Simulated assay, not measured.
Amino acid sequence: MARPRAFDEESVLDNAMNVFWHKGFEGTSVQDLVDETGLNRASMYASFGDKKALFLRVLDHYTLKISAVRFAKLIEMPDGRQAICETFHDMIKSGLTDGRNKGCLMVNSGMELAPHDADTATLARQSFKRIELLFVDALVRAQAQKNISEGKNTRALARFLAGSAQGLQLMARRAADEATMRDFVDVTLSTLD
């Protein structure tokens, strides 16, 4: 019979996520992960595999824990246009506070690894597609509510909004000031008019 784990998996993933988020994949050593998670190397390898396997688990964890919350209003708010506007304004707030100099782990990882790592590239593409579809749904609601023009191509606009969300996260990572981020969001949201 296998022994039960003596650690909280979610806490380990949270701690590993923070290390990868701050240092990137290449900048994170196995010792960094051991130090931050509190696991010894043997437990880490037995439970999660090598560094890359843990990293891929962390990206899944990030999608469920952080990204899902970041884009939740696109699902939860009945008013599609308002959901889009609030999502972008919330991203500004996050980028200026707890997300300062962090950006989006998925975007950061895609920039760092996707050009030469198929697994990360696949996860980054899936993440973008998921966000695009959330924007499509909100735009379709907004059109039905007559809050945006029926002539708008919702697929093309959703792709633009998803790309703009990624761009805003990159701006947060490079510590753009609030005025710059607000200008960016204002122009982005003007595409809804």
Score class of each variant (00 low, 15 high):
residue 20 F to W: 02
residue 134 L to I: 05
residue 76 E to T: 01
residue 63 T to V: 06
residue 114 A to I: 06
residue 62 Y to D: 06
residue 16 A to Q: 02
residue 151 G to L: 08
residue 23 K to N: 11
residue 68 A to I: 06
residue 27 G to I: 10
residue 67 S to H: 07
residue 69 V to F: 04
residue 92 I to M: 10
residue 143 Q to M: 12
residue 64 L to R: 06
residue 120 T to H: 04
residue 168 L to R: 10
residue 99 G to T: 01
residue 65 K to C: 01
residue 97 T to M: 06
residue 182 R to K: 15
residue 4 P to T: 08
residue 77 M to W: 08
residue 167 G to P: 15
residue 65 K to R: 03
residue 144 A to F: 12
residue 38 G to R: 04
residue 94 S to H: 15
residue 157 L to T: 09
residue 130 R to G: 11
residue 29 S to H: 04
residue 103 G to I: 12
residue 107 V to D: 11
residue 186 D to L: 06
residue 46 A to I: 00
residue 39 L to N: 14
residue 101 N to L: 14
residue 161 L to H: 07
residue 66 I to A: 04
residue 166 Q to E: 12
residue 41 R to Q: 08
residue 149 S to I: 05
residue 35 D to G: 05
residue 162 A to W: 02
residue 11 S to K: 09
residue 85 C to D: 14
residue 81 R to T: 09
residue 114 A to S: 10
residue 29 S to P: 02
residue 5 R to A: 15
residue 24 G to H: 07
residue 117 D to Y: 11
residue 113 L to S: 11
residue 176 A to D: 07
residue 177 D to F: 01
residue 83 A to K: 00
residue 14 D to E: 03
residue 18 N to S: 11
residue 182 R to A: 15
residue 169 Q to I: 07
residue 143 Q to T: 06
residue 90 D to M: 15
residue 96 L to R: 12
residue 87 T to K: 03
residue 141 R to I: 13
residue 148 I to H: 00
residue 115 P to R: 05
residue 60 D to R: 00
residue 45 Y to E: 05
residue 92 I to H: 05
residue 78 P to W: 10
residue 7 F to V: 03
residue 71 F to H: 10
residue 4 P to C: 04
residue 188 T to L: 09
residue 149 S to F: 07
residue 118 A to F: 12
residue 152 K to W: 02
residue 140 V to R: 03
residue 40 N to D: 14
residue 3 R to H: 07
